[in-house]
Design a protein around this nucleic acid. Structure first.
Lengths: 220, 220
DNA sequence: CGGTAATCTAGAACAAGTTTCAGAACTGAA
DNA sequence: TTCAGTTCTGAAACTTGTTCTAGATTACCG
């Protein structure tokens, strides 16, 4: 079948761009994602077993792999899904703080508390995200863009962000992911994660002119 | 890397603290770690296959698992090993910069260039590190302490670090790990990693009194 | 040296992710 | 409806991490 029929071959239903999914396909995809989240909530990364996802979604194993070409793809897609929800939820109650840094810290701590409610699910998604290799880059990138959007939203800027602010946001994202991992693997407490987030969020006020920087006096 | 390390127990067979290893056992352990690094250098995480590590180290599979209870344990131990080397190498040429933040950034970029020489090895070690679950926490913690030591060394402080400085170091570590991951998975360029590191290292100068902060004026 | 417990070896066996394949079911078009 | 192409199913096979077992080897102690 070699010749470039752009629609079907290279990318199954999983790809966001090419193929318009039929009704039933869209339903299958949603069923799979739902099952994935359910199993992950129960027992984390290891509890999401491809055979069980397939069976519990009423789909053959081969079909599952056509929709999501690996377990990591599946879990990263699950994270995309959950992040969408989170973004909308967070949008409904914008942060109450004044300084952009404090606003971002407040928002991320809200997100963190949401994750604490389903720690196993968080474990599965974050482990998949950091374990993903190059073949998952596009999907991981989508998650990254979503996270960036959440942070920029929280900052509540008037205009577009400056390059320095974007750098700060990148670093905040790094810290966010890595701090989550240390918490999930039991090497950092919730309080410690809070401190780390608040620490890194100072970078934002550093790059935001015209606001009151209360830099704490060098003692303490 | 002599035998004079004050602590060789941290990764004995099975138990963290108990048994003094015999000559042959120490040799086996080193052979295994060497094989692990060699295979990882060739093809990254996936190329380190437990059967091949065992065979190529002249050791039975069961013995390999007695020394390192999982592939992740093995690779994290490999990272410990490599980090020791790196720490000593970096120590020989302390950074030339003035400000602590710039010194740390310079040191981390040197470390980064070292990793670039063996990107597959870096991939294997970093993926193992972030994929590690609770059962590997002690070993991962050791790696974290080593990294902290490298950064504190680079800062070149006179006295002990302040709590604020320790927080900044934690955030730098987070950024370091996460930036490495984005680079390894092809989602960030080398230049981008450099920017991220330099950005986060400003946090250090923020918390270091009595130095020249050239904070950029809140320009237009 | 002899005995005993721990360690090591070789290899089978098991678990879960992934691939493959033949055929049934579905889709869209003539 | 019929036909051709695609998708889905069910099941087996393959891969690699991990566990298990029986017997050989080694280390230690009297």
């Amino acid at each position: 079948m070699g010749h470039m029929t752009t629609e079907s071959k290279a990318a199954g239903p999983a790809l966001p761009a090419s193929p318009p999914l039929t009704e039933r396909q869209e339903a299958r995809r949603r069923r799979i994602l739902h099952t994935s989240a359910r199993l992950a909530s129960r027992g984390g990364f290891d509890a999401v077993q491809m055979r069980e996802v397939a069976e519990s979604s009423g789909v053959a194993l081969g079909t599952l792999y056509r929709y999501f070409p690996s377990k990591v793809h599946l879990l990263v897609a699950t994270m995309q899904d959950q992040l969408q929800h989170l973004h909308e939820t967070l949008r409904k109650r914008p942060p109450s703080e004044e300084d952009p840094g404090a606003r971002v810290a407040q928002t991320l701590m809200r997100a963190f508390r949401a994750l604490q409610r389903e720690p196993h699910l968080a474990d599965a998604m974050v482990r998949a995200l950091t374990f993903a290799d190059r073949s998952v880059s596009p999907e991981v990138d989508t998650v990254s863009r979503l996270t960036t959007a959440i942070i920029l939203d929280a900052m509540g800027l008037d205009g577009p962000p400056s390059p320095e602010q974007l750098s700060a946001v990148r670093v905040i994202e790094h810290t966010w992911h890595s701090a989550l991992i240390t918490w999930l693997s039991g090497r950092a407490s919730i309080a410690q994660v809070k401190i780390d987030i608040e620490t890194v969020c100072r970078l934002i006020d550093l790059t935001t002119p015209g606001r009151s920087h209360h830099r704490p006096p060098p003692s303490a």
